[in-house]
Design a protein around this nucleic acid. Structure first.
Lengths: 149, 149
DNA sequence: TATTGTTATACTCTATAACTATA
DNA sequence: TATAGTTATAGAGTATAACAATA
């Protein structure tokens, strides 16, 4: 089937296309661990911000506290993180468990391997340029509150 | 909240980040038209392949025929496309309606405008390089059949 | 036997709204 | 009054499994 040529010069669509491929790879790699790319990101955020609370995690992931709750439940059920009592009695403080620390290392290894294959068609220099240019894309707008399916 | 530094050099994650921003913009632009990025892509595919059937459309969008059915229903309900009888009596032949043609032009205009803002931080030359490098990312793997939420 | 459209059903991720406890 | 966690409920988008009609 002929592909829509009007989109060839629309940056957003080229980003979408490339990112769907990367997302598919990442899901494939993380599947044996029972996680998704978003959940791995959550794990990394908790490791980098030990003791953070659920709402802050949600904001960092651009999801609301109710959705963050479900995500945290899954990570707790998998034994990868734990909720401890925070200094503020309203909050839970989130920490990685030893299992979470160990699993994360292995997952990142596999992810990096898949990432190398993703950029098989690029030279090392091109890959570097691509990473640099991607970081120049305009940062997210702050919008009233909307879902990003 | 501190952001996960381990992902800075993972191409897949930088693609994901940039594409989430672009996706948010595109949804915002298309919202008044009652469409999403995927539905606009469907419209473009039908315009570029007049008379195509639902299953082929689904394959081009990487969704199965059942999901393609629902998507086509929405576009038909909006009056943007129509089902005619195909030469093969099993299939529907899909065509844009005049309303679909007209709406598409306006939507693409707005989308291009948003796309310019997306690349505000890049020079014209950088934008061109970025588009070129994105096309060098490895094409999708063919996998048994799996969902890509 | 294989494929298309169709329907019924279910799963995932997200959201909103309301409630409780704490600040 | 404002915020964190929680729960119940709903919507979008996807999938699988079955069926009839057609190839």
């Amino acid at each position: 089937m002929k592909h829509a040529g009007e989109l060839r010069d629309i940056l957003g669509y080229q980003l979408r296309r490339a990112s769907l491929i990367a997302d598919d790879d990442a899901r494939h790699v993380l599947e044996p661990f029972g996680l998704t790319p978003a959940k791995l990101t959550a794990l990394l955020l908790i490791r980098g911000n030990p003791g953070c609370d659920q709402s802050a995690l949600g904001r960092a992931l651009s999801i609301n506290r109710s959705s963050a709750m479900k995500l945290v439940n899954v990570l707790v059920d998998r034994g990868l993180i734990e909720r401890r009592s925070g200094r503020d009695l309203r909050t839970n403080a989130l920490y990685l468990t030893p299992e979470g620390e160990g699993g994360l290392i292995e997952m990142l290894d596999r992810l990096r391997e898949a990432d190398r294959e993703l950029s098989d068609g690029l030279t090392a220099a091109e890959r570097t340029v691509l990473l640099k240019l991607l970081q120049k894309v305009r940062p997210p707008r702050i919008r009233a509150a909307a879902g990003r399916p």
